[in-house]
């Protein structure tokens, strides 16, 4: 029986087609669960508490969240409904900041945290009064002890509400806040 190479080629093409389709389908499934903007997740954590250290080994911040995805490409972290606690830096200061948001992005070197969606940051002033910052976007730089809101942001203190319609910048230890396009309402008396 003479060997028919056309049959062999056809068989190979069919097998190759099936393999390629299977690969596309399964790969697709894996990606849909990943929310990160990079590649595949390095690892995924659920219901965790993480203490991040800075370059000198000091605590940069602590975060608790139901979910964390670490990106394999640039090692950034994506978190859902995180609860951050940012202590005063080793260089002095007294204020601890508790910050929550819908999502957060943390750079690989823990130098920057980008909080997005219903961001609320709470701290106490030196005389014990609550100081609250609310916004939709807050970029926090733990080591510099700096928080920057590029969009509308509001600071509340007892009897005083101040809004930066074009954002604000807060020095987290001195609690000096600079507002862009400022509106203040004071009814402290």
């Amino acid at each position: 029986m003479k060997f028919n190479w056309r049959v062999l080629v056809t068989l190979l093409l069919v097998v190759f087609g099936i393999a390629a389709t299977y690969n596309l389908l399964t790969r697709g499934k894996v990606n849909t669960t990943v929310t990160s903007t990079g590649g595949l997740p390095d690892y995924v954590l659920s219901d965790f508490e993480l203490v991040a250290l800075d370059a000198t080994g000091q605590e940069a911040f602590t975060v608790r969240a139901p979910s964390l995805v670490r990106d394999e490409l640039d090692q950034h972290l994506d978190l859902k409904t995180p609860v951050f606690r940012i202590p005063p830096s080793a260089k002095g200061g007294y204020a601890v900041w508790d910050v929550i948001s819908e999502t957060a992005w943390v750079g690989s070197d823990n130098q920057e945290i980008r909080l997005r969606g219903k961001v609320v940051a709470n701290t106490k002033t030196r005389d014990g009064k609550l100081l609250k910052v609310s916004t939709e976007q807050l970029n926090v730089f733990p080591e510099k002890q700096l928080a920057v809101a590029p969009v509308l942001a509001t600071v509340n203190q007892p009897g005083l509400t101040i809004t930066g319609q074009n954002g604000l910048e807060a020095e987290m230890q001195t609690q000096r806040v600079t507002f862009r396009t400022m509106r203040a309402h004071y009814n402290g008396r």
């Binding site: 002033t125 101040i162 000096r176 806040v177």
Partner: peptide, 24 residues
């Protein structure tokens, strides 16, 4: 004098340190 005070300005710096004024 018993009414709330509203302030608007292009920019403002709010200070917490005792004795340090805020500037608008």
């Amino acid at each position: 004098r018993n009414q709330p005070i509203d302030i608007s300005a292009d920019a403002g710096v709010m200070e917490q340190a005792a004795g340090k004024p805020s500037i608008v």
